[in-house]
Design a protein around this nucleic acid. Sequence first.
DNA 1: TTGTACGCGTTATCAT
DNA 2: ATGATAACGCGTACAA
Lengths: 366, 366
Amino acid sequence: MATVRMSDVARAAGVSTMTVSNVVNGRPGVSEEVRRRVLRQLAETGYRMNVSARNLRSGHSGVIGLAVPGHDVPYFAALATHVAQEAERRGYRVAVEQTGAKEAGEVAAIRFSQAMDYDGLILSTVGMDLEKLDVGQAFPIVLLGERENPTAADHVSMANHAGSRAAVEHLAAQGAGRIAFIGGPETAEQTIHSLRLGGWREGLQDAGLACSPELIFEAPEVTMEAGRRAGRRVAERILADRAAGRDPIEAAFAITDSVALGAVRGLADGGLRVPEDLLLVGFDDIPEAAMAVPSLSSVAPDMSWTARRAVELLLERLGGQDGPTAGSPPAGREETIPWILQVRESSSPVRSKQERQLTDPTGAAS
Amino acid sequence: MATVRMSDVARAAGVSTMTVSNVVNGRPGVSEEVRRRVLRQLAETGYRMNVSARNLRSGHSGVIGLAVPGHDVPYFAALATHVAQEAERRGYRVAVEQTGAKEAGEVAAIRFSQAMDYDGLILSTVGMDLEKLDVGQAFPIVLLGERENPTAADHVSMANHAGSRAAVEHLAAQGAGRIAFIGGPETAEQTIHSLRLGGWREGLQDAGLACSPELIFEAPEVTMEAGRRAGRRVAERILADRAAGRDPIEAAFAITDSVALGAVRGLADGGLRVPEDLLLVGFDDIPEAAMAVPSLSSVAPDMSWTARRAVELLLERLGGQDGPTAGSPPAGREETIPWILQVRESSSPVRSKQERQLTDPTGAAS
DNA sequence: TTGTACGCGTTATCAT
DNA sequence: ATGATAACGCGTACAA
C-alpha cells in the first residue's frame, strides 16, 4: 500500500533508478533484455510516477490554466472543451478556473495560477483593466476575447465591432426600422459591453437608421436571467408603442446568445414571439442557438481556431523555460478570430410550415 | 526573474528558512517583530511558494479530480461549479476531466487521476461497469449518478427510478393516455438509460397505462442533437396516428433535459408544439429548463446537496493520509440525492395569455 | 550501457 | 522563539 518508488522498481529489477527512469520515459540506451525486465517489474509493483517530484525537478508543472467567467456559461464550456483538446495534444493539461466575470476574479485567477505553479494562463477577460497585467511577474498570459488594449500579453481577440455591425446590418436588410440593443451599458471601456454596443451604433449609422438611448435595453450581466428581464421590458415597450400608434421596435441585437435566449423567454412572458413580433440576432453561436425554437441567428466566431491559437501562442512563450530566454516572441501580439454571421429562424421572414420543412431551418451545415 | 526561493527570503530577512515557512503558513511560534520583517521581505522579493515542492514533501497534491462526460453538458457544467465551490472551501482544488460518456473514458480518467497524483476522484459515471473499479489500487473514488451497484467505492446516487416514475405519474395525472419514453435502450444494465427507462415502465404500470415498445423513441446519446432526431420521429408518429384515426401519443418523458430540449426542436421541425401537441417532462432541471419556451418541467435533483456530499465523502476517505489508516469509514457507502418534480409549462394544460402573466410560468421559486 | 552523487524547494524533527 | 539537518522522489551530469 505504501508508495512504490522508482528505486523500489530498480531494486526489484536489479538495475539502477536511472535505467528505470530511462525505460519509463522511453529514452534510448537501454538494452532490450533489461527493458523487458524493468517493464515487468513496473507492472508487478504497480509503480506510479510521482508527478510532484518530476515537476520539482523539471521546473514546470505541465499544466496551463484557463480562467473563464464560469463553468456553466455555455460559450465558455464549449471553449474549455476545445482548449483542453488542443493542450492535451501538445502534452499539457488544462485546469479550468472561474472568475465570476468580475475583475477581482480575473486578478485572483492570475495570482492563483502563479501560486499553483501553472506554466501559463489563458485568461478569458470580460471586463478587466488590462494595465494591471503588467504588474504580473512576467508570467506567461494569453488574453482571450477583448481587443485594442495594448499590453505586454498576447491577445486572441473577438471581432466585437465588426461582428456586431454585421448583425445589425443584416437586421436592417430584413427591413427592420428600429433595432434595439440588449446588453450592458457603455460604462467600462474596452469591455464586451462597450465594444458590441459600439458595433451596434456603427451598424445603425451604416444603414442610415436612428440610434437613440431608448433603444438600449440593459442586461448588466451576460446571463439568460438578465436577458429575460430585458426581454420583458422590450415586450412592454413594443406593446405600449403599438397601443399608442407609434412605430414599434422591430428587431434587436443581443450581446450574447445566452442573453438572446433569455430575451426570447422574456418576450414570451409578455406574450410576444420571435421572429413574428421581433427579429433577433445573438453573438457567440453556442450549441443551444441552433437547437432553440426558434433557432437563433448569431455571430459565429470560429471556436476551434480560437482554442488552437490561444494554446499555440501560450506555448510559444513557454519555450525558453529554464535556459536563457532565447528567441522569445515579441510582446503583445494581437490576432483576430475569424467569424461568420449564422442566419437562422430568429431573424428570418416568417415562412409557412411547408416551406420550413423543405430546408434545414437551423443552419446546421457541414 | 529567476525563481525566488524560501531560502532567498530567509537570507534577506536574516532568519532561517524554517521561520519563513512558519510565517508563510501562519504557524504559531514566531515573534511579532520577526514576522513583520519576514512579511516585508516576502512582499519585496515577490516570493511565491513552489507547490510541487510542498506536495512532494507533504505527500499529497491538494487536487481532487472530477470526471464528467463533458465540459459542455449543461448538467455537468453546473455540477462542476458546485463541486469546485465545495472543494475550495475545504482547501482543495478541482481539476475537471472529460470522459466522453464512454466507459473507456471513465477508466482512463481513473488511471489519469492516479498518474497525475490527484488525492482522489469524483467520477460521474454514465455507463461504467463498476466491477472494474475494484482493480484500482485503493485509490479514493466517489461515484456519482448511478446506483444499486455494490462496490468498494462510495456512491452518491440519483433517484433514477423514483424520479422517472414521478414524472410519468404526473403526466398521467394530466390526462395523458399514451406516454412515450425518449432515451437510450435498455441494453446496458444499471446505466442511466436502463434505470430511467425502468422508472418509466413502473410509472405506466402504477397509472394502469399500456407500455409497449412502440412508445420508446431512441436517443442513444444524451445530447440535444439526439433528442432532436428522436423528436422528429415522435412528430411523424403523432401525425401518422392522427391521420389514421388512431389514438396519438399525448405525452413524453425524456431521459434528460438536454434530450428534452432537443426533442422540442425536433417536434418543431415536424410542425408540432409543446405542450399543445405533446406534454413533456425532462430530468436534471438544468438552468436552461426554466428559461426555455415553453419552460420545461423536470425532475430536479438537489445539486448543491450532491456536490457537498460528494466532496465530503471523498475527503473523509482522504483522512488517514500518511499515518496509519485510523478510523477510515466503512466501504461502499450509498446515499441518494434529494429531488423534487418541478412542474412548468411543458407539462401543464394550455392557458390563455392573461392567465400566464398572472403567475410565474417558469417556476423559478427561490 | 549502467551506476553514483547531488540538487530541486519545502517541511518535520530535534536541538538550542 | 529560532535554527540545523534530513528527508520527500525524481532527473541531470558525469563517471565507470
